[in-house]
């Protein structure tokens, strides 16, 4: 049996609001294998974004164990977590989170700066991934000169530029029209076929239906874990 890429055991995240404990995550156990395409679903406030942040090493759990590639994340320093975010995980956000003052190519090259890649190689690699998402001709445009779908494709190119094993997408189609949504989902499916692990947060069942595994989060717990095509009972 292949060892899972992501192993969560008893993950809790507790916030203190007005002196009261609020558990955003109430003890999550979850394994995700390499090459899986998992969709995290759930109503707003269910804790799916918190779970996503912990999976993406942007946040630390209050307690519980998170092993990424067999390594306990809790033992990593902040700088080591930064390296994990830089090299092993690619992020795609709902509102794109591109830097508005620099070109699409420079946005894509951003993670490479922190990976210590030289200028010429950065340029070359940024072009290559932009070509791969079909935006090679828009490399020198600034984000505000691009449509929503194009911006999200730039963001995906940025997530891919360091060739990470895991892509994490938080409502990547939340701000897009139907046509762009379709294009973006096709890109994700393509990445899945290449063998990358994809974890995607969404509240739309049609989006989740593209994934090979659907997870329903409710009140900080995973309440349903199903395969492709199963109709999830979100509301």
């Amino acid at each position: 049996m292949e060892k899972p890429m992501i192993e969560l055991a008893g993950i809790k995240k507790i916030y203190y609001v007005g002196g009261q404990e609020v558990a955003a995550l109430a003890g999550i156990d979850l394994n995700i294998k390499q090459g899986e395409f998992a969709a995290l679903m759930g109503p707003s406030g269910s804790g799916k974004s918190t779970l996503m942040n912990i999976l993406g090493c942007l946040d630390r759990p209050t307690c519980g164990s998170y092993k990424l590639d067999g390594q306990e994340v809790a033992n990593l320093t902040d700088d080591e977590l930064a390296v994990v975010r830089n090299k092993r995980i690619g992020f795609v956000f709902q509102n794109f989170n591109l830097l508005s003052r620099i070109s699409a190519a420079d946005n894509v090259a951003l993670p490479l700066i922190y990976a210590g890649v030289g200028k010429n190689e950065r340029k070359e690699r940024a072009r290559k991934v932009l070509d791969a998402v079909g935006l090679g001709d828009r490399a020198d445009h600034q984000p505000n000169e691009l449509s929503g779908g194009q911006r999200q494709r730039v963001a995906i190119a940025r997530a891919l530029v360091n060739d990470p094993h895991i892509i994490m997408a938080d409502e990547p189609t939340g701000n897009l029209d139907t046509k762009s949504t379709k294009e973006i989902m096709e890109i994700f499916e393509g990445l899945h076929r290449e063998g990358r692990t994809i974890i995607l947060v969404t509240h739309e069942p049609e989006i989740a239906a593209c994934a090979s595994r659907q997870l329903l989060v409710r009140d900080g717990l995973i309440t349903q874990d199903a395969g492709k095509g199963v109709k999830m009972d979100v509301v």
Partner: peptide
């Protein structure tokens, strides 16, 4: 602030 958040999410360290 947001730019800093983006840079950190993409792997910028405290020192960067």
């Amino acid at each position: 602030t947001r730019e800093i958040g983006i840079r950190k999410a993409l792997g910028a360290t405290f020192k960067n």
